[in-house]
Amino acid sequence: MELPLVVGVDGSDSSLQAVDWAVDEAAHHGLPLRLIYASLWERYEGGRPSLSTERPAEEVMAQHIIASGVERAQRRNPAVKASGEVLPDEAVSALLRAGSEAWGVVTGSRGRGELAGLLLGSVSLAVAARAVCPVIVVRGSEESRQGAFGRVVVGIGDGAKSSAAVRFAFREAEARGGALTAVRAWRTPAHAHVDHPLIVDDAAQAHEERASVNLDDALRQAAREHAGVEVRRRPAEGPAHRVLVQASADADLIVIGAQRRHGHVGLQLGRVAHALLHHSQCPVAVVPQRV
C-alpha cells in the first residue's frame, strides 16, 4: 500500500499554506494526501448525556475545517487524491501516530491559537522533534513555497555519509527538476596562531579543504543514484546554524537530518534544527536518522 503524505490542518492561515504546499508535494511524488484535524471535543462532550439534538459547536467546526481543507486541496490539484479525517486526540499525538505510517508529515509554522510573538508553534516543534518519518514545516516567503528558486539545499553535518537527509534531498531535487546545493559549514579554531596571519590562512584553507572532502564523501553514493540532478557543493565558513539560515534565503526547501536515538522519546533536535525551524526563509524538512 502506498504511504500517504499527511498534513495537519486547524483552520489557521499557516495550516492552509501547509495544505497548498502538501498538495504540490504530493503531486511531485505521486502520493495520496491525508488531511488530519485533531480535536478532543468527543472526550469532553461525547460522554455527557444531552437532551439537545444539535451537534456540539466544536464538532461542527472540526468537520467544517477538514471539509474545507479537502475542498481546497482538490481545487488546487484535482489529480491528487485527497481525504480528510477528524481524530479525537491531541494534535501532537495524532500527527505522530499518523506519521508512523506516512511518507511524511507536513505542518504549518504556527497553529490556531498560538501566541503572535512565537516564531514557531509548539505542535510543529514537537512533531519535528519526535516523528519517525520526515517532517516538513512550511514557512518562509511565498516565492519559496511556490518553488520559484528551483533549488533544494541540504545541510551536511558530521557522519552524513549516505544519510537519510541526503537521500531525501536528492529525491526532492529530482522530483522538482531543480538543482541541489549541499552546504558544509566550517570554522577555523579561535586559538589557531592569531599572531601569525600566514599560519591562520593555511589553517583556514585546510579546514575548507576538509569540508570539501566531507561534502564529496556525503554525496558520492546518492549522486550516483540520481545522476540527473545538478549538484553544487558549497563549503562555507561560519557557524552551521547561521550559514544554513542564510542559505535558505533563495531556496525552495532546506533539508537537515535529526538523530533519533532508540528508546529516547523526548525532543531530539539540535541547535541547527532549532535555528532553521524558527528562522528559515523557506520550508524546512527534518529527516530522522536512526543511530
Results as ranks from 00 to 15, higher is better:
residue 163 S to R: 08
residue 185 A to S: 15
residue 87 L to E: 12
residue 178 G to K: 09
residue 134 P to R: 09
residue 167 R to K: 00
residue 170 F to P: 07
residue 124 S to Q: 08
residue 91 A to R: 02
residue 126 A to G: 00
residue 109 S to K: 02
residue 148 A to D: 14
residue 195 D to G: 10
residue 70 V to F: 03
residue 123 V to G: 11
residue 111 G to Q: 12
residue 172 E to Q: 13
residue 199 I to S: 11
residue 197 P to T: 15
residue 159 G to L: 03
residue 107 T to Q: 10
residue 204 A to S: 11
residue 87 L to W: 08
residue 85 E to M: 07
residue 147 G to D: 07
residue 149 F to V: 10
residue 120 L to K: 10
residue 197 P to G: 15
residue 201 D to M: 06
residue 78 P to M: 08
residue 103 W to N: 09
residue 171 R to E: 13
residue 120 L to Y: 11
residue 154 V to Y: 03
residue 124 S to K: 01
residue 188 T to N: 04
residue 113 G to C: 08
residue 160 A to V: 06
residue 98 A to Q: 11
residue 79 A to L: 11
residue 106 V to C: 05
residue 171 R to M: 02
residue 122 S to L: 06
residue 197 P to H: 14
residue 125 L to H: 05
residue 117 G to P: 03
residue 199 I to V: 15
residue 83 S to R: 08
residue 205 Q to H: 15
residue 115 L to A: 10
residue 117 G to Q: 06
residue 107 T to F: 09
residue 183 V to C: 12
residue 126 A to Q: 00
residue 152 V to P: 03
residue 149 F to H: 13
residue 136 I to W: 03
residue 163 S to C: 03
residue 112 R to L: 13
residue 166 V to T: 11
residue 91 A to L: 13
residue 90 E to G: 11
residue 180 L to H: 04
residue 161 K to E: 15
residue 82 A to K: 07
residue 133 C to G: 01
residue 97 R to N: 14
residue 151 R to F: 10
residue 99 G to W: 01
residue 92 V to C: 01
residue 131 A to S: 10
residue 160 A to W: 06
residue 77 N to S: 15
residue 177 G to W: 03
residue 93 S to V: 02
residue 77 N to F: 12
residue 151 R to M: 09
residue 191 H to W: 15
residue 113 G to H: 13
residue 200 V to N: 11
residue 204 A to Q: 10
residue 115 L to Y: 03
residue 90 E to R: 05
residue 177 G to T: 03
residue 133 C to P: 00
residue 178 G to Y: 01
residue 144 S to N: 01
residue 104 G to Q: 13
residue 89 D to T: 07
residue 155 G to C: 02
residue 138 V to K: 04
residue 202 D to L: 12
residue 134 P to Y: 05
residue 135 V to F: 03
residue 172 E to S: 08
residue 155 G to Q: 03
residue 118 L to I: 02
residue 198 L to R: 05
residue 155 G to W: 03
residue 171 R to L: 00
residue 72 R to G: 08
residue 149 F to L: 02
residue 142 E to L: 12
residue 78 P to N: 15
residue 155 G to H: 04
residue 111 G to I: 08
residue 112 R to Y: 11
residue 134 P to C: 05
residue 114 E to P: 06
residue 158 D to E: 13
residue 181 T to C: 07
residue 119 L to I: 12
residue 174 E to K: 15
residue 121 G to A: 14
residue 108 G to R: 06
residue 128 A to G: 12
residue 88 P to Y: 01
residue 176 R to V: 00
residue 177 G to F: 01
residue 148 A to P: 07
residue 169 A to F: 00
residue 199 I to W: 02
residue 127 V to N: 00
